[in-house]
Design a protein around this nucleic acid. Structure first.
Lengths: 197, 197, 197, 197
DNA sequence: GATGAATGAGGATTCATTCAT
DNA sequence: CATGAATGAATCCTCATTCAT
């Protein structure tokens, strides 16, 4: 079997897992259910993933890879000011999650208690993500547009906290709003708080 | 048995549950374990709580009652400006959680995936809490110190998001810092973002 | 629940296990089947035994306890010659197994491959049993009726080997013979081989 | 592929099976493991053997063929007395097993519980083997050196029982002794028991 | 002939909950 | 009120076997 076909099947299983886990929660989803939705036998799951938990980790890894990749693109852009980068970052975070509600549910709800189990693993990816935000803030400080005495990492966590809460709130609200529509007010508050007075 | 004694036993069970669930997670904790730590028989748990889930809900309710009570005290204080109220609010949130790491773990980690199950219940208490923050922000707008065009509820969620992330970060970090020590930088960023320019 | 009633239920489960395992083999028997025959729920098995394997060990322990107890009675009898003791020993071994075909099947067939897993445990009980035989042989040497240069332990193993093969042969043969009927020829050959010439 | 090459591959698979099953037991060994060690694909196993069980049967058959062939050579030797033949038989049994510990493990441990499954099959080969021993004993009776009233088949089983226990004991003991070294004491006891007084 | 990816039946074990004492 | 023994549903994972390539 070609690597490509294997990869495709792996993706199909991950997609099925995202869908089911988003709807029923990690503990409420059986491996059988995921297999059925993916159109494979139960045992096949274990040819591609070590365990049910590994499936969850893999969902996280796949998503974070994309997140970090896209975020890095923004942070490393040449000739772009920190304010604009922050604006783009906020927009990216909210639209990536806003585009895929199932994934968002998993990120905002299922991964939380899983952090318990996966602490190290997930935290290391998260650290990367936070570091990207922090770099934007540092750039801002260097440019003189953000406060001089800013603790970049701590502030990055606050930025993340806001984005995270926006996402959670959107996930749990039944209303049919677009998550990305919150970009502007979020950016406003953030820039207000970060700018030199 | 007097109501008082019953109440005391109920509290003992809740305390045991907080302790065990914080350490092993909701799904990793058995009702038996909680019973043993509380010094009662397994069946006794069911004389005080409808189910294991009810136990979790009750932990949440008990904590939120105290949170909301204390927060209401701040919000309803007469003759105190919005900025000061916000400052106190931030300090309260961070110290209540910072004082009881087990409870903080449950709030920051265990409740998240439980939101899935408990959506309505927990959200209603949360709404009360968010409403309290929003009232402070509205007061600030009325006083002219916070932006005129502020969406108070949305901004309240951002405030909450920051506080929440601070708490999560503290819970997951192994370092022996005090959560309350983050009050100042958090308040600074928030006030900066909320103030009229 | 009284200790007596608990013990009785434990015995009932063990009896059910002996019966089922003798018929279908250890791997061919499910815990459910044992539970059904014992008239308890699946989970109840685990209140009395740590695991399916523990069930097998316990069957062994229970039987060996009786074997060793009865055998010790023979070996320690005062004023009885070694030849007579050996005669009784052979008779005991063959009648204990001959009385309970299910138990015999488990001893002769199921325990063998289990030795693989349980090596130490079962071997220690076996060593006790072999030691008892060896003591009879030593007594015989002292009395001058058995060969002077006998390696008592090695000879004890041979005695055991003969008894064991008799039992296995009986278990696997479908004929309706009595195992104990082989006592005489076995004793004859053994005494012939052991006696001084 | 030539018959010879096929035969060679079949042998390689059997060898791999002996090695793995001796170490991990029949139920602890997967077909995959055997295939990997034999250097073939899982499916290939099934081109040479009907099932996993057939693999075990085939190990038994291959070994018994050699056992019976060599044993027949001893039994059918012209001009050799029964006592000498018995001596040679004992030596043969113990050295064939003593030369290949893996095979011995399978014979003494794994085949036992398999007898359960394979009863008929293995018993027929065993009967042949026992019959060979019995013929030596009958020859001894005819020569007047062994007891006149000997039940040859029963006595053969005792002979086998002793040999078997010697082998099992050797397999389970960790000591680095040679199995064949027990030939002399075994023969002594046997001849003592069988001879006319 | 050979491969090895896919299958799916099967089973030990856990644990929330009940209820006779 | 309290107990804790008993229940039995529920599920992850393994692995012998098949079959399309």
């Amino acid at each position: 079997m070609t690597t490509q076909r294997k990869e495709a099947k792996r993706e199909r299983i991950l997609d099925a897992a995202v869908l089911e886990i988003a709807r029923r929660g990690y503990y409420g989803t059986t491996v059988s259910t995921i297999a059925r939705r993916a159109g494979v036998a139960d045992g096949t799951i274990y040819l591609y993933f070590k365990s049910k938990e590994d499936l969850l980790v893999s969902i996280f890894e796949r998503a974070m890879q994309r997140f970090n990749f896209e975020a890095a693109g923004i942070v490393e852009a040449d000739g772009v000011g920190a304010e604009e980068k922050l604006r783009r970052f906020v927009a990216l975070h909210l639209s990536l999650l806003g585009e895929d509600r199932d994934l968002a549910v998993i990120f905002q709800v299922e991964f939380r208690h899983t952090l318990h189990i996966l602490e190290r693993l997930s935290r290391s990816r998260m650290r990367d993500y936070l570091a990207l935000i922090a770099r934007v803030l540092e750039q801002g400080t260097e440019e003189g547009v953000f406060k001089r005495d800013l603790d970049a990492l701590l502030a990055a966590k606050m930025v993340f906290g806001i984005l995270d809460e926006m996402a959670t709130d959107w996930v749990l609200s039944k209303k049919n709003t677009r998550l990305a529509s919150r970009s502007a007010p979020v950016t406003d508050l953030l820039l207000g708080g970060l700018r030199t007075s």
